[in-house]
């Protein structure tokens, strides 16, 4: 399938959202709100829940399925206070030794006046720095769009997985094409050279697992993908939890340390 077709599936308004997965996979989800500094950002949902017998912290970037919902969720584009809420919840998870699971689905961090005034760059940077040191197992799953720094801010985790029809990129194919060829309409071509599909990123070692969806995308059989995620999470968390914390942290450091190609 051409990469751009995956982009279209990833952006589908009917595509299952973070809350869809959270509600299906976990029991007793209690949503926790706010960054304790400025306000609650509805583009981010998060809280505590049970995965089988294990208490976990779950966080997601939430898109809407209706215009009304999307306005409320700011189309899944978090503000700095959204990232600060995620950090608060992740530090809380660390305190209570809960594993952390992040569902990523954002075209990017919101580019706006308030976002800049309140330090969008600082908020993302802080997450990158803090997440590398969290003393609990962490897993992130790109379930739709993984847009740039706004996605990475939730993806500095022990494992990064992608759904088969999700994408993860440094910028959108449209943006890429308009820079390179001054023509946003060549997004399809851009998508091909950018290496943004789950398969490409698996080959590059950027993600550890690609999770299957039924033909046409997860919305066609939501239970299929959600159940797959659940069983993989259970297996993986058992493995990660068995590691001693220093090993976990040094492996996480190495996971990100190895990215980059150069000669000297």
């Amino acid at each position: 399938m051409p990469a751009y077709d995956k982009v279209k599936i990833a952006r589908k308004v009917s595509r299952p959202t973070a809350l869809d997965y959270i509600n299906h996979i976990f029991d007793d989800f209690i949503e926790l709100h706010g960054d304790r500094g400025f306000r609650d950002d509805s583009a981010i949902v998060g809280g505590i829940a049970m995965l089988g017998d294990t208490p976990v912290t779950v966080i997601g970037v939430q898109k809407g399925k209706t215009m009304e919902e999307n306005i409320k969720r700011n189309f899944g584009q978090p503000h700095p206070e959204g990232y600060r809420k995620t950090l608060r919840l992740m530090k809380q998870a660390e305190k209570f030794r809960r594993p952390i699971i992040n569902f990523i689905n954002t075209s990017g961090a919101y580019p706006g006046v308030g976002a800049e005034e309140r330090g969008q760059g600082e908020a993302i940077a802080r997450n990158l720095m803090e997440m590398i040191d969290l003393r609990v197992p962490t897993i992130s799953i790109v379930i739709g769009e993984g847009g740039s720094g706004g996605a990475l801010a939730l993806a500095v985790t022990d494992r990064v997985w992608m759904l088969e029809n999700s994408v993860y990129a440094v910028l959108s194919p449209e943006g890429f094409a308009s820079i390179l060829w001054k023509d946003a309409k060549r997004a399809k071509e851009a998508a091909d050279v950018m290496k943004i599909t789950a398969e490409d990123l698996y080959d590059l070692g950027v993600v550890e697992k690609v999770i299957k969806e039924v033909d046409g995308g997860a919305q066609n059989d939501f239970g299929f993908t959600a159940n797959l995620i659940k069983s993989k999470l259970e297996t993986e968390l058992a493995e990660l939890t068995a590691k001693d914390t220093d090993t976990l942290l040094s492996e996480r450091y190495d996971r990100f340390r190895r990215f980059g190609e150069f000669k000297e």
């Binding site: 952006r11 189309f75 075209s107 990017g108 769009e145 910028l171 943006g175 890429f176």
Partner: peptide, 11 residues
């Protein structure tokens, strides 16, 4: 529209 605008930012 929103995602394109967002893209523009990245652009």
């Amino acid at each position: 529209k929103i995602s394109v605008e967002n893209l523009k930012g990245k652009v």
